[in-house]
Write a protein that binds this DNA or RNA. Structure first.
Lengths: 352, 352
DNA sequence: CAACGGTTGTAAACTAGTTTACTCCGGCAG
DNA sequence: CTGCCGGAGTAAACTAGTTTACAACCGTTG
């Protein structure tokens, strides 16, 4: 019956014995101008042949591919949830995300951004004429170089966990979140507190902000000391820095790690040094990644709302596409995080 | 300069002062027939204007979109690795996966497949004229109903962890893997062994096979007893079944769980019942998910090769697309798994 | 002076539809 | 008998190129 692998509108029109234009209009929903019987015949023929709209053609004609490019890291549970929020939100508008990444899983959670690769990936998306881009900026040295190009092509961009003056952004409310952590630790009685930051490269604005907001929040208290360490540019020396931090003359009774990945290093280093958690050392993480609850002891951490972050990023993009938002002025949305108290925090030993 | 948001070939041709056809041929690499100076002008103009090939047009003309649809579950670390293998392999051929899922993260690792949703997602991919499909069949009751349609459209399909007679498939070598687990437990001296299977719905052929292969492997030994339990159709009663299994009159000294998710239930139930792991109870999982190493005690488990599985599935699809494989005869590739011995297995108590 | 090879242009057909402008036909009302 | 309207068809232009056939121009040989 079908001599072509995929049925074309032409085939449907022929089967229903109507013209191509009539079939097109009827299938697009413009049924008022046609007889009931004709509509029925066309719809039936379409169903029978398994005809489906061709979004390639649609994309060429309207300039809308109903596809959003997403550049985020090889996934840990945070990014899986972000992606899930993006996916759900886009699906509601009949959009689909198309996701690319650079680096490899083996290098998680930190990895080198290779400029050439980032550029290749962003171009793969542009070649497919995506209607918008959601990204985590560390992937995109490419991003900075190509922002003017994206603007010229009118491809809206939303960035996640990165402050930007040129694109819409969604980020965790670092001031709120770090204040909660500081309150928790200070409330337990800790007065010598260490902070383990991540890589603080120019693109990792979240790490810088989280660390500095935390320092500020602790210092507002007056009588507590806080000191921060950070990973090297490759993020490859987590365990060493954690050891260094724990053996420092500060002798911290509590450590705030800017993400659960860093908290895991602190936990491991504490174990090696014979420090019991939480009796000798309290640890607070950030993100509530899937492994946080099953660490021993279960990790006290700030639970971000990754699904919500993804949802909002997708909504920003959709609003730009639909022209709901005015052409100018990038928006920044801050999402609150909540403290999940588990077993890795306790008052410091009074003997100390 | 550019009056249109995205530069067209027409603009490049005009800027380089050549005809549209010449620009097209030169940019496609057909440079032999043109002068060096002309080629330089066209390439330069293209670079300057930021022109990029339009894969929508390409797709319409050649019937190849350089895109592969992927339907896999909301990701745990196994599926993230599978996806990574797919991504890397496709990228090498300048293809991109476009991933959809059904169900939600909250229902992991088991969830209802809702037929309507599965169909909607597969159609989203078909609308974009993907060149092939990689999927995990539980997502696709849709798949079974639409296989004839896919065949007619000549869309090659590869399935993962599911035996199929109609599509290519890649799966873990269950016989090899379960024999290794059986040898490990029997070698330690266990003689009363329980097996906790997953949901054993018709689409979960891997669970059925893994459980039955394990039973067979144990029974080959002669003097050991094995008994199996399984989750309900929704996969919602893992903890209850684990409790039931541990309090059964069999009094198992070891449990093999068909995935780490189920192993986690066994661990939790053991804790509740005051059984120490591994002194009172040995547990073996399957998959080596990211949380396996940080469980307490760290879980002995079979490490699958998800990246390799993804790579092979992508390669099967690419071979079908490139016409390398003959038109008939679906292939099945089996991938070996390796035992990772951690702290959750030990010899049974001799007192017992 | 004509033929020739190397370069480049022109025009048309093609991918799968969408959309607009017009036309055509039959039946009914005035 | 004419006008009008609903229901349909026809043709063409348009999306962004790709590809083929053919023509045209140039300077250089024979």
């Amino acid at each position: 019956m079908a001599n072509s692998p995929v049925p074309r509108l032409k085939d449907v029109a022929k089967a229903a014995n109507v013209s191509l234009a009539a079939a097109s209009r009827i299938l697009r929903g413009d049924r008022e101008r046609f007889g009931e019987e004709t509509c029925r015949r066309v719809l039936e023929a379409s169903r029978q042949l398994g005809w489906r709209r061709n979004l390639l053609v649609n994309g060429m004609q309207t300039g809308r591919t109903h596809t959003i490019g997403v550049m985020i890291p090889p996934y840990d549970s945070f990014w899986v949830s972000v992606l899930s929020g993006i996916h759900d939100t886009l699906a509601a508008s009949d959009y689909l995300p198309i996701t690319v990444w650079i680096g490899s899983l083996g290098d998680m959670p930190h990895f080198e951004k290779e400029e050439g690769d980032g550029l290749r990936q962003i171009n793969r998306l542009l070649d497919r004429r995506v209607d918008g881009l959601i990204m985590w900026p560390p992937f995109s040295v490419a991003y900075y170089h190509h922002f003017p190009e994206l603007v010229e092509r009118r491809v809206p961009v939303a960035v996640i966990d990165h402050y930007s003056t040129v694109a819409d952004s969604v980020e965790t409310d670092e001031e709120q979140a770090t204040a909660v952590v500081a309150d928790h630790l200070l409330g337990l009685g800790h007065r010598r507190i260490a902070c383990l930051s991540s890589r603080e490269t120019p693109s990792q604005t979240w790490a810088v902000k989280r660390r500095s907001s935390f320092e500020e929040a602790v210092r507002r208290n007056g009588d507590a000391t806080v000191r921060s360490w950070q990973l090297n540019a490759h993020g490859s020396n987590g365990l060493e820095v954690a050891r260094e931090l724990l053996t420092d003359k500060l002798r911290p009774t509590a450590v705030f790690a800017v993400s659960d990945h860093e908290a895991a290093f602190v936990r491991q280093a504490a174990g090696e040094l014979g420090l019991r958690v939480p009796q000798d050392l309290s640890i607070v993480g950030f993100a509530d990644l899937d492994f946080a609850a099953t660490m021993s002891p279960p990790l006290t951490t700030m639970r971000q709302k990754p699904h919500e972050i993804g949802r909002l990023a997708a909504k920003l993009i959709m609003d730009r596409i639909d022209g709901i938002m005015p052409d100018e002025e990038p928006t920044t949305i801050k999402v609150a995080a909540e403290l999940i108290v588990r077993k890795s925090t306790a008052p410091p030993r009074t003997a100390d």
